[in-house]
Computed example of a mutant assay.
Amino acid sequence: MAVEASPDMADAVGSFDPLRPLLTRVAYRMLGSVADAEDVVQDAFIRWLGADRASVREPAAFLRRTVTRLCLDQMKSARSQRETYVGPWLPDPLVEEEPVDDVTLPLMLALERLSPLERAAFLLHDVFGVGFDEVAATIGRDAAAARQLATRARTHVREARPRYKLDRERGLEIAEAFFAASRGGDMDALGAMLAADVSMWSDGGGKRPAAVVPVLGFGTVVRLHRSLAVHFARHGSTFLHAAMINGLPGFVTREADGEFQTTALEIEDGRIAAIYVMRNPDKLRHMH
């Protein structure tokens, strides 16, 4: 027999659910993990259930503050875990038809170098458009300090922000051409797409084979792909679809071990400046 929700529960759900996508975006941008973001948002919902909701004038501000504080608490332990992470750390891939903001994968990596409070101030104000009075109340500082944190963060991440908007269709065309050249072993075609200072970052998390340090420079990246092409010729790599991944053009594949893989390409002046490959199955679980 179905159990009807109480009026109080229905009221809490009704006011919370429209805000869930935004709250999840805030948590994901703070933590870089889809699963952790979902856990934080669910924890915020439990707190919302127990709150005196009648006294909350702005539920969105209250919940955004709750989520941000939960993320700040979680980031303390996350930082120590990153220190023992095997190989380069990349955020969980978000596969989107159209990016919902300008926080691309390179910017998320730059945010990792900020203090938790700098990251919170920058994201809340610069990305989500929150005023400094609310930012200050959220992070437990005064408005002047919150403004200074955001300014300092902005200076640190300036180089990681997109210099110009790449046409989405052109970006996906380059991604598909990169897949064809890298899997087919056409190193001339692949080389023509790469910038001279191209880099490649692979996150296997110690769970699947991946380079444990970034691969830097044109010659090194081409040599690695020449070796990978031999592997792909023997074992295959199935193209599933092109997509925007963390704001960058890329593609999703199923590899010979049956696992998903995402490849995101940072493109500058028509050439690939960086390649980001996610192989860690824990970070791809949400894609199933």
Rank of each mutant, 00 (worst) to 15 (best):
G131Q: 14
A78R: 10
G14W: 10
I139P: 13
M75T: 03
F122G: 02
V40S: 10
D188S: 13
V130W: 11
M187C: 05
V221G: 05
P106D: 06
E268M: 12
G131C: 08
A145E: 14
R79V: 13
S227T: 11
A243I: 00
F239D: 01
M200V: 11
L109I: 06
V41P: 06
G219C: 06
R47V: 04
M287D: 00
V215Q: 09
Y28P: 01
L149K: 07
P214V: 10
G206F: 04
L105N: 09
L172K: 04
I245L: 06
A180V: 09
A196P: 05
F122V: 03
P162D: 12
V222W: 07
P18W: 00
H286C: 01
W48V: 07
L124M: 15
L216P: 05
V40L: 15
K283D: 01
M187K: 05
E58H: 15
D203G: 11
N246D: 14
S227P: 03
F132T: 11
R47E: 15
M108H: 07
D133S: 14
I245E: 03
F178W: 14
P106I: 02
G219Y: 08
V41K: 02
A143C: 03
T66D: 13
R154W: 02
A242C: 12
D101W: 01
A264P: 10
D36M: 06
V212I: 10
D269I: 01
A256E: 12
K207V: 12
V127Y: 05
F178Q: 08
L19H: 04
D257W: 01
R158W: 01
P93C: 04
H231R: 11
E176F: 06
R208I: 07
F239T: 03
